[in-house]
Nucleic acid binder design. Structure first.
Lengths: 215, 215, 215, 215
DNA sequence: GATGAATGAGTGTTCATTCAT
DNA sequence: TATGAATGAACACTCATTCAT
């Protein structure tokens, strides 16, 4: 029956929901407390299902963490691929990309915190996740195309490595979320405050544009 | 008694050494595994003394962590205060400060990782540490003085908030250490490689200078 | 319906095959790991059918174990009954019986291990299996007949209890399989090695014959 | 101080008692239920101390099992070494050794059951215990000396391998304890009944002597 | 000041079994 | 009859912390 493919059974649909529900809860817990600090019991409790199901679907605490990490990365890459700024003039395209990246970090603190945690663990878990590199490549290619167009148009310096550019954008976007609490305590400025956030957004765009345009 | 200050007894000298030894070991453990991931038993084992001493001197796991965090911050602020670049011309001074900050992060990954961890914990522990703000102020004052001198000299734009400038420098320096592992996995570039590190050092300096200098 | 016996339906034939397949797999698992050590999931996985079928056909882990145990005992008793040595002269008949018993143990380690396991469980499961005693009786009767014939012929001592004789044969045959691993480790001799096995076979026959013939 | 060696502190004496108490309880539990069937919680409960102490002293379930196994073997070998029958005439010495071995098995069913369990586990744990072989050697040497003396005196056959002899004695002694429950169920004879036991003791001695003595 | 022994609450994981389709 | 999903009780093991000497 064609139906079996187009209409998944009620059972399997519910199963997918269970899985997704677990991932959602776990994402928040791991982001909030880190891999070592999160508790399987607590994740299970906040879930619509049970602790047993976590083991049924994911195998264990670490494997669940990896599934969470993979999902988080897939989401940001998917967003990046959805956003097509290549048709804009180079400067506008770069402005848009930086702004988009900046906003994404702010709107997805869980992603930022998962990445922090993964670095705390020396990236040992991300190493086990395949299928990540092809997605990363497209980000770089996109930046590369804009840089090339801008260089040809004489608005950008030539010779800028798109990976370097990406690290600049990423570093400046990441910090606002990753270091929010210590920065607030040390300097009394909360990056999450709307006014501060808007100001920083412009500064970061300006900073990077200044870097790519000046000789 | 004046004696206790001028001639510390053998006992108290040894006590200070024990304390320092514990802090050193604990710094590395907390930096390596995070607060939740670190183990008191493991810290004690790597120490020249015993688990009992940790409780004797610091009270518990969290208190030890706070002592470690405080010590790490004191050290970076001390270094920053030792480095006096105010007498250099503004551009040179800023170059020196950025380079110094960049290098400090690279040479003290434990500090970077402790700060990451503290943010994972929403800065709840740094909040309990007093005596941090005065030290932070001096960093900002130092940058403020340079900005002012540069603006007066016409080389820097006017109206730059030294706190914003500090966040720029910090973000760009921090990222290379904090996100080293995920960046390596995703883009195949290891920030810790000497050539990469040197290149990024120059780019970061260039980027910030481009931002603060007048067009 | 007579049909159900003479022409088993396809369904019931398949059902019998499913049952038998489960028993075969379970026999090996229980023999290998013991009742407590065996895992229903693992048994189900190695089966051509599923975990649900185990519960459908047998009821549960313990009941499956009993079915396995019963089947294993039925098989050895069936073999013993198939082997008719009563027509041989007493000494030859006894030789044949001992040799046959010795070989059976070697060739059916799963049976030996199931019996070991059952004794570990204080024989609580075998107690629930009916229909075992009549079969055991025939072994004893067979030995009794040979002993009687031998005593009458003057080659065996009189007054030997066939149950005692059976326990001698059984003990000497069982040990080679049941204690193979510890004996190998302790004394460096592997009963399963062909040369060792052949030597022991002769010694055991000789030993028991010496016992029944000497005064 | 010499005292520290001759007079162990109260603490360490109590610690040794705790260890020993755990071993005693664990021996019985492992012997009763097997490695897979025994429960750490249950062992802990029957102990004068706690579950945590089991992990403190032994490390885990398997390691505790190994400690139990090692202790059980050390005890039987120690008993064997304490019993000196070498000065008796060969036949009497052998009688004594067999009787002693037979009795030991009856009086130490835990030992027998631990060995059964170890064989269920394919001897994988005993393989990790060092220091067992030298002790085993002395049993064989002892039997070898008796066999030699008996052969020289013309009462025993020449050429009997003491390891073979040991396996005969061991097999016949072991079975009465190891297979007690199934034998009782199958043949209605309880090896543990005093009369049965006494009868089997004599039969086993007679059987082995018949085998080793010259016709 | 220093050490090994002890503890209880918790932490990840596994198990036999049952349910819904 | 057959299958994947679900369950709760139990299980082995770990942790920060305290006690006794």
């Amino acid at each position: 029956m064609a139906d079996t493919e187009t209409k998944p059974s009620k059972r399997s649909r519910e199963a997918a929901e269970t899985r997704e529900n677990i991932l959602e809860v776990a994402t928040h817990e791991y982001a909030d407390k880190g891999l070592a600090g999160a508790r399987i019991d607590e994740i299970a409790e906040k879930t619509a299902s049970s602790k047993r199901m976590i083991y049924y679907y994911f195998g264990g605490k670490d494997e669940l963490y990896r599934a969470v990490l993979e999902r988080a990365y897939h989401r940001i890459r998917a967003q990046e691929q959805d956003a097509h700024f290549e048709n804009l003039p180079p400067v506008e395209a770069l402005r848009a990309i930086i702004g988009h990246n900046f906003d994404y970090h702010f709107e997805h603190p869980d992603f930022v915190r998962l990445v922090m945690n993964e670095n705390v663990h020396h990236g040992e878990h991300i190493a086990h996740i395949a299928s990540m590199k092809p997605r990363n490549r497209s980000v770089i290619e996109s930046l590369g195309a804009i840089l090339k167009k801008g260089a040809e148009a004489g608005v950008f310096r030539a010779g800028i490595d798109p990976v370097d550019l990406h690290s600049m954008i990423s570093a400046l976007s990441f910090y606002n979320v990753s270091n929010r609490h210590t920065f607030l305590h040390n300097f009394g400025v909360d990056f999450a405050e709307p006014a501060v956030r808007a100001k920083r957004r412009e500064q970061i765009i300006a900073c990077i544009l200044a870097w790519v345009t000046r000789d």
